[in-house]
């Protein structure tokens, strides 16, 4: 159930935004008549409402609207392009890796120690790449200075 304070706040807001019914106006008038602090708050919020009522959001250059759809369309195209490129890289990269590993294992002339070295080195490179990429992406998201131009 709504307490008296919440009801008073609602009535104040409705009064400021011109959404009071006649019954609510009477209810608010009664509250205001009894409470000088509430009257002072009503006046102060009323002055704030006048100020905010005289402000508006800045219009961008008209050219922006002419280019908006083309720009949004290019963004959608790029999104599809990136999805296809990523899919291609994953499929081809996965296949190439599989080929490399199976050929390396099947190679009877290469000493097992060298094979193990190549596999370990390749695996290490993959882990390092993933680790650096992940860290860079994480830092990009959380770096508080990334917007500062050096």
């Amino acid at each position: 159930m709504m307490d008296r304070l919440d009801r008073t706040k609602e009535l104040l807001m409705r009064a400021l935004d011109d959404e009071l019914s006649p019954e609510e106006r009477t209810e608010l008038d009664l509250l205001l008549a009894d409470d000088p602090i509430l009257r002072a708050e009503r006046e102060r919020l009323g002055r704030l409402k006048e100020v905010t009522g005289e402000m508006k959001l800045r219009n961008p250059p008209e050219q922006l609207w002419d280019d908006y759809w083309n720009s949004a369309y290019s963004r959608m195209e790029r999104g599809i392009g990136w999805i296809l490129v990523s899919f291609g890289v994953i499929v081809v990269g996965g296949w190439a890796t599989w080929q490399f590993v199976t050929e390396l294992i099947a190679d009877t002339e290469m000493p097992p120690l060298i094979k193990a070295g190549i596999l370990a080195g390749s695996l290490g490179l993959v882990i390092l790449t993933v680790s650096v990429l992940r860290q860079r992406l994480f830092v990009r998201k959380t770096d508080p200075y990334k917007d500062i131009v050096r």
Partner: peptide, 12 residues
């Protein structure tokens, strides 16, 4: 209304 009230109080 309660969000508006809190916002306006903070602005005032």
């Amino acid at each position: 209304m309660s969000r508006l009230y809190a916002a306006r109080k903070a602005l005032a």
